[in-house]
Simulated scan of single mutants.
Amino acid sequence: MKILLFTFFLLISITSSAQLTFDQRILDCENKWVAFPEEYGGLYKYGFIFVDSRAGLTFEYRGNLKIDPTGKIKAYPNEENSSIKVPLYPSKTLIAIIPEANFEQLKISKDPDSQSLNKFKEGSIEQLYSWGSIYNAWGEYQKAMELLEKASKINSEYEGLSVQLAYSYNRLQQYKKAIEVLKKALVVNPTDAFINKEYIYALVNTHQLDAAIDRYRNSLEVCPDKTYVAENAFYILQGYFYKIDKKNFDKWLAQTENVMSSNEQIKKIVEEMKTGMKNEM
């Protein structure tokens, strides 16, 4: 009887160890072997998540796995166990961390060959900047700011650092800090569209609308990248809207409505703002 009970509990243990619990955010799984939710036929994509020095948060796809009725994992690795590296973008998808008890079945090691992964040195400015940028992209602005400020203490002129730090400040409504950082960044790179966008945003939110308009017009002349033109015009219109300044709202709208209409999302919000402004009068 004791032998039967032991066998029963052992079977439960083996079966349980292969269960995948999809309760982890992608952002929290750096340096972990993970599986993504089932897609078809009981198959789960599995691989390793790390921060690539060029692509940012990355999934090294190793193949598919399947769990049979007894709880045993069967792996279907890529040809010759090759890896495919896929950048990861903001998503609400929850994934599962693969238990170490299943590594042998999958023929994987806790720490993959670091030579095949473009990883950063712990605590380096490259790591701080990369993770700060990732946190910004995923909406974790407080965490981003803390890392980027640490990076700035190492080298405030590190490429791309100023605008990422300013982006964090702007989203945390620390506009004066953003302006201070962006003024210096514009001296070095006045034609950068992203820097100009964040500067206009900060100026609007500190009620410096005339300065924001000057920067907007200057950016039209000097920035080859026109990605943010509609967004910049919208920020200024929004500034007049919140001030309930109908005269300047209508004036700016007449000058830039065609530009803003190129962005469907902005176009829809502008129509709502026009209605709201009429109702305020």
Rank of each mutant, 00 (worst) to 15 (best):
L148S: 02
G41S: 12
K251L: 07
D23G: 01
I97M: 09
L5Q: 15
P77D: 08
Y89C: 06
L57R: 15
S219D: 00
Y240M: 06
S109T: 10
K121H: 06
L88T: 11
L253T: 01
Q238A: 06
K92V: 12
K85Y: 15
L57F: 15
E159I: 10
L57G: 07
I236C: 02
F9N: 10
Y240D: 04
S168P: 02
Y158L: 00
E140A: 11
Q255E: 15
Y135P: 02
A202L: 00
T206W: 05
G71Y: 01
T21H: 14
D225R: 05
D28M: 03
S156N: 07
D250L: 13
M1C: 08
L161F: 00
E38R: 09
K143F: 04
N64G: 00
N136E: 00
T227G: 00
Y201M: 15
A166K: 03
I97H: 05
A193W: 11
P37W: 06
R25G: 03
R54C: 01
W252L: 11
V229T: 12
A185P: 07
Y129E: 05
E221I: 15
I134G: 00
F249C: 09
I195R: 13
G47Q: 09
L10H: 01
K45A: 14
L10N: 07
F194E: 09
A254R: 09
S124M: 03
I195Y: 00
Q238C: 04
T256S: 15
I98L: 08
L27K: 05
I134K: 05
S262A: 13
A101Y: 03
D225G: 11
S17V: 07
Q19A: 07
T275R: 14
A166D: 06
K153A: 09
N78C: 06
D210K: 15
Q164N: 15
Y89G: 01
S82V: 09
K183W: 04
A166L: 06
E104S: 14
N170I: 06
F103R: 05
R25A: 12
N64T: 14
